[in-house]
Design a protein around this nucleic acid. Structure first.
Length: 135
DNA sequence: GCCAACGTTGGC
DNA sequence: GCCAACGTTGGC
């Protein structure tokens, strides 16, 4: 089991819409590092859902329901998507500033490499954020 | 609205 | 293969 974090601007695709849809393919990744992370996702992996720009907070947990396949929104064969479903909404959102304040989260990609849109998390880091969101 | 970080492009 | 220019992302 691996753990991940993905970013979405709520204007483009929000957690609320994700819950309404029940499932979505995660498209729009146009960065090799993020794509490589998508390709490493396995069915059943858990994925934190982060709202960038507006909100700047983790709002819930998704799970991977289909592993990577070619991005249906482009002819360019370099890019892939995965299918995600909502797993559990956080009881309360965990903000970026809260995460920055946690020494054990100082190494996560969200803080160290701000522009990366799909990143791996260690189990401890995942647990730490979920612990705050479900408290 | 500004700016830092960083990826990509293209000239040489 | 290097590097300057440029574009995009995203926090502040």
């Amino acid at each position: 089991m691996n753990y991940w974090l993905v970013k979405s601007e709520p204007f483009k695709y929000s957690w609320q819409r994700f819950e309404q849809d029940g499932k979505t393919f995660w498209d729009g990744v146009r960065n090799y590092q993020a794509r490589n992370n998508l390709m490493a996702m396995k069915t059943g992996d858990l994925v934190l859902f982060y709202h960038s720009n507006e909100g700047m907070e983790v709002v819930g947990i998704a799970n991977v329901v289909r592993e990577h396949y070619p991005d249906p929104t482009t002819e360019d064969h370099r890019w892939v998507v995965v299918d995600l479903s909502p797993h559990k909404a956080f009881k309360r959102s965990v903000t970026l500033s809260e995460m920055k304040a946690k020494p054990e989260l100082s190494q996560i990609g969200l803080i160290r490499q701000g522009r990366l849109s799909v990143m791996p998390l260690k189990a401890e880091e995942f647990d730490c954020i979920v612990g705050m969101g479900m408290a």
